[in-house]
Amino acid sequence: MTTRALAVVSGGLSNPSSTRLLADRLTAATVEALRTRGDDATVEVVELRAHARDLADNLVTGFANQALRTAVDTVTGADGLIAVTPIFSASYSGLFKTFFDVLDKEALVGKPVLLGATAGTARHSLALEHAVRPLFSYLRAVPAPTAVFAAPEDWAGAGGVDRALADRIDRAAGELADLISGRPPSTRPVDPFADPTTSFEDLLRGT
């Protein structure tokens, strides 16, 4: 059984949040779908609200601190990504966009991604297709065909989730598992400055 690394990016601003709730549902369904395909999975969650100041600092300095660097490495080194954002003014949140703005432009090339979004009204449901999907297409990721949107009424069914939403979650999770299965496992990117072969003192001496 191959072990796959699954990264989850949640852009929810509150705690608890419906965005994180949807992310957790999508994650559980994807882990199960991978298992039925003969793959195990490890899961690491990146809560963007914890990195709001780190991201602002990165934008103005061009450098990520250790906490943000760890989050970036989690996403770029994963075999698959689940990315869920709240929808504000008919588009992804600024915090969500900022995280993907600070990634290297090649970081998500070819990476399977499951897209999800939440909002206070179903009128925002098309934001996944006109805003979120184009973002990941621009980054040359590979979004799963089914994106999952949840409005407040979608959490009103048996077990806390509407049947139609549960079906969309299962379908999208299966599509992501199909995209991940059969691919060679990803490896974490190596930071060339993490373990320099030349000491700082030698560099100062010009040796």
Score class of each variant (00 low, 15 high):
77 G>E: 02
84 V>M: 04
49 R>W: 05
86 P>S: 10
85 T>F: 00
66 Q>C: 06
60 V>M: 09
84 V>N: 04
59 L>I: 02
85 T>C: 05
50 A>S: 10
70 T>N: 13
55 L>C: 04
66 Q>W: 07
70 T>D: 15
71 A>G: 10
80 G>Q: 11
82 I>N: 07
81 L>M: 06
71 A>L: 06
65 N>Q: 08
77 G>D: 03
54 D>I: 00
62 G>H: 01
58 N>Y: 04
51 H>W: 01
79 D>M: 04
61 T>I: 05
81 L>R: 06
65 N>M: 09
79 D>T: 02
74 T>V: 12
77 G>V: 08
85 T>S: 14
57 D>Q: 13
73 D>R: 04
59 L>P: 02
73 D>S: 09
60 V>S: 14
56 A>R: 09
86 P>D: 13
53 R>W: 15
53 R>G: 08
83 A>V: 15
58 N>G: 03
83 A>G: 14
57 D>M: 09
87 I>R: 10
84 V>D: 03
49 R>H: 08
61 T>A: 05
61 T>G: 02
85 T>W: 00
51 H>I: 03
84 V>H: 02
49 R>D: 09
50 A>L: 14
87 I>C: 12
86 P>T: 05
49 R>I: 13
75 V>T: 14
77 G>R: 02
52 A>R: 14
51 H>C: 07
57 D>C: 00
65 N>E: 11
81 L>I: 09
52 A>E: 12
85 T>H: 02
53 R>P: 05
61 T>W: 12
68 L>G: 06
83 A>Y: 01
55 L>Q: 08
73 D>Y: 03
75 V>A: 13
84 V>Q: 06
73 D>T: 12
49 R>P: 06
61 T>P: 05
68 L>Y: 00
87 I>N: 13
62 G>F: 00
64 A>M: 12
77 G>P: 04
61 T>S: 15
64 A>W: 04
67 A>I: 01
83 A>K: 09
63 F>T: 13
87 I>V: 15
55 L>K: 11
64 A>D: 14
64 A>N: 11
86 P>W: 00
78 A>D: 01
64 A>L: 11
60 V>T: 15
74 T>G: 00
49 R>C: 04
52 A>H: 10
57 D>R: 10
56 A>N: 12
52 A>I: 03
51 H>T: 05
71 A>K: 04
52 A>F: 02
61 T>V: 06
68 L>F: 00
72 V>T: 14
64 A>F: 08
65 N>R: 06
57 D>L: 11
72 V>Q: 12
62 G>T: 07
61 T>F: 08
82 I>T: 11
77 G>N: 01
50 A>N: 11
57 D>G: 01
57 D>Y: 15
59 L>C: 02
72 V>P: 02
60 V>C: 02
80 G>K: 11
70 T>C: 06
76 T>V: 15
53 R>F: 15
80 G>R: 12
69 R>I: 03
54 D>M: 01
68 L>V: 05
85 T>M: 05
82 I>E: 03
58 N>I: 00
74 T>C: 02
67 A>F: 05
81 L>H: 03
53 R>V: 14
62 G>I: 05
78 A>R: 08
69 R>A: 15
77 G>K: 01
50 A>Q: 13
